[in-house]
Design a protein around this nucleic acid. Sequence first.
DNA 1: CAGTGGTCTAGACCACACC
DNA 2: GTGTGGTCTAGACCACTGA
Lengths: 245, 245
Amino acid sequence: MQANSQQDESRSPRYYRIYQALLTDIQHGSLKPGDVLPSEMNIAQSHGVAPGTARKAVDMLVDRGWVERQHGKGTFVRRADFSHSLARFFRLTDREGVQLHPKSELLGVREVPGSAKICRHLEVAENSELIEIERVRRVDEMPLLHEVIYLSRARFHPLLDLPPEEWGDLLYPLYEQVCGEVVFRATDTLSAGPAPEGPARHLGLGAGELVIEITRLARGYDERPLEWRLSRGRLDWFHYSFDIR
Amino acid sequence: MQANSQQDESRSPRYYRIYQALLTDIQHGSLKPGDVLPSEMNIAQSHGVAPGTARKAVDMLVDRGWVERQHGKGTFVRRADFSHSLARFFRLTDREGVQLHPKSELLGVREVPGSAKICRHLEVAENSELIEIERVRRVDEMPLLHEVIYLSRARFHPLLDLPPEEWGDLLYPLYEQVCGEVVFRATDTLSAGPAPEGPARHLGLGAGELVIEITRLARGYDERPLEWRLSRGRLDWFHYSFDIR
DNA sequence: CAGTGGTCTAGACCACACC
DNA sequence: GTGTGGTCTAGACCACTGA
């Protein structure tokens, strides 16, 4: 057996091209969250490579968080789970260290013309119709965060017809069930600044008091922006820790 | 050839045991930062496994940031580089987007008895003699951070004899050159709170004004705590962004 | 040139899930 | 049982580094 020329056509390794092909399938939606990938033997045969090469391509997808292996069952496209994302920033455990889950109170759902800044973030035309969602998230009735969320009306208009009592505590499952839009990843940006009057009141603060600001741009599997949000929280609850190097 | 029983003795795979053996060498100092690892063929032979298995062990070290491969030369134990770590938190670029490097002004180096909290973080006996370093870090003369740093006197006493003009802008290279202590990784924790009078003055603020607080616990290759520091910075310079999922 | 890591092959057997 | 992923072998050739 000879390892026949790894560099036929393109300059990249075979496993990398297979990785890209699978990733494209995921990003274009032919492989949806929850779907099973072809088996590694299958991938190897259909690409005409040895099993080890196909495996390495799948390894890359696993390392980068696109798929999950399940021994004996198969490899599946991951569904993102942001339900604990707030715990990154706030002390959300009770005295026994048990994880607490914030409740959401919906303050309003409005159709608004998009500002230049938000439209740019969402990569839609300026003044596009957007949906603005305002809510407060509480733990044990203590207000933790005030959030303003913007979505493209074109993609998310079914939310406008949803009665308030059907909005749960988490938006992303709603996006998926009601609008068929799936959030895969997000970029959070932390900053701090004075709170405008409305948000301050909901947080039990005076206007202009300093709050932590978390802006988030959430994206789908195809990397297109789906949601932009600005969350404001009390500094005295805030806390974030992570490793470097 | 048969794949003869992967599970002789312990239950873990061979590549994992090789990974652990190499990691132990790094953490115990028989492999120091900058040292070259044995070649993959070498590792394979000395552990009596196929090259691919040895390679997988090295892959794990690479993935976890312990070593770096250099094609054609070898695999080397990494030396951590924290010189850009502040850029994670503060806008440290000029108008052209060029990276700026903060200057450090040494305010004081003192021998102090360790408080209970700090001794616990450093994992030394309560009331152990510590070294306290106070400094201000500036960009373009603008004060960015006020820092208080604690080190074990037993390990770092050579710093006490170092004249102020020989302290550069970065402490970690100093630790290595003067004390032989190498920082490999650190945990940063973000919070916010009112600034005491001293730090506030150095930041150009009034006492009690809110500042961002970054506490850091830095560790060596053997995971033992080397340094604990509390940095306070102006909220209006603060900014942090990262991806989730 | 020899030595290193980078890619790849074509198999093997094991452990787990499901029928 | 079959089919999946998990580990492992014993080689091959390629690309890069440095003497």
